[in-house]
Design a protein around this nucleic acid. Structure first.
Lengths: 206, 206
DNA sequence: GTCTATATCGGGATAGAC
DNA sequence: GTCTATCCCGATATAGAC
């Protein structure tokens, strides 16, 4: 009532974000989103024609917020270790305040693989180019013939999983929110060290 | 009709497993499970009273099938690299056919963190004991003072994330189901190598 | 135990007043 | 643009014949 004019659509998106985050696509209820936004269901359909549309909007926003930077970082000309450090630092900063994003994306992938496909087309990601660059860089800097795909997957795993598994980690070790944030902070240096150590190790075997 | 007696309940569980795997709890349809089992909906409710019951049965079975082994592997007396190899091998085998398990666990964590707690209590996991053992083993075998928590988290990340992110990986690189299974197979040796290489790397810096 | 038919309800979507 | 009331389909669950 008070906060009109530029408010409603934003409020809906904000509410949808929260609900889709908590429940996923199938679990989310339009009613719950409406309640969260303090409006009624009909208005949701006025702004976004369907549940699917609304989901897509939220999903895209989250995805690009997360992945937008990653592409430019990995296509830059810096040493690999620096890239990984930069990626982790940026990524963990963004996520410590938006820890719902990676889970939301993973969940969305399972529930709506079709949406994922559309997004990748729009994002203009060329994974093969990335792999080639990574292969060359590893060979140049570490002199080893390693499958770049697995290295890439390792970097992603080590970055994303600890954020997604936050509730598991906190419950299992009885860690406070501050303790968890501290762990993420440590990982900004620990993970790049771990990876570069591993890459150095390949030299001797090759 | 032919394969009666010990058949129906098993067939239902098998079908439910497949469908819940593909769609998750909310996305799964009792009709689809019935079709998959080649029976009708009513029979599902005859054997299991509700959808929730059926899901719980499927989930518990798979969860303990998965985690039962993990504990014994990591508390055994073998060298660390062997433990990791064994863990990955077993884990990836089970999950390539039940990849919904980590997804469900994550989902449950976010929706009902309390449930997670109960599961851990039943599984009788002692994380601190595990950490101590890991710290000692790393020190014995690699002579380095490393924070075992991060190593543990790395092992988990490298094992679980590639399974959870299956749709992302397949879509991004346009990989077939066979191709994906091949990747998992490769990781059974790649990941232990990666980790032990990294651990060796710490020696020089310590 | 297994089937067909049906009850019941929840949720996405629309109509139409204001 | 925002609301109330309602449509309508689909999904879980049950009744009851065989």
């Amino acid at each position: 009532m008070v906060n009109t004019q530029q408010g409603t659509e934003e409020k809906i998106l904000e509410a949808a974000k929260k609900v889709f985050h908590r429940k996923g696509y199938e679990g989310a209820r339009m009613q719950e989103i409406a309640d969260e936004a303090e409006i009624n269901k009909a208005l949701l359909h006025y702004y976004f024609r369907s549940k699917e549309n609304l989901f897509e909007a939220v999903f895209k926003d989250a995805f690009f917020k997360l992945m937008g930077r990653a592409k430019t970082v990995f296509l830059s000309d810096k040493p690999l270790k620096e890239k990984i450090q930069e990626f982790l630092s940026h990524y963990l900063d963004v996520l410590s305040e938006n820890s719902y994003i990676p889970w939301f994306i993973l969940n969305g992938m399972y529930e709506r693989p079709d949406v994922l496909k559309v997004i990748f087309e729009k994002a203009e990601i060329n994974p093969l180019q990335l792999m080639e660059r990574l292969r060359n860089q590893i060979q140049d800097e570490y002199g080893s013939e390693v499958n770049p795909f697995h290295i890439w997957l390792n970097v992603l795993s080590l970055s994303i999983f600890p954020v997604v598994a936050k509730p598991l980690i906190r419950e299992l070790f009885q860690i406070t929110e501050e303790g968890y944030q501290q762990i993420l902070e440590q990982r900004k240096t620990e993970v790049p060290r771990f990876i570069t150590n591993a890459l150095k190790g390949y030299e001797e075997n090759s």
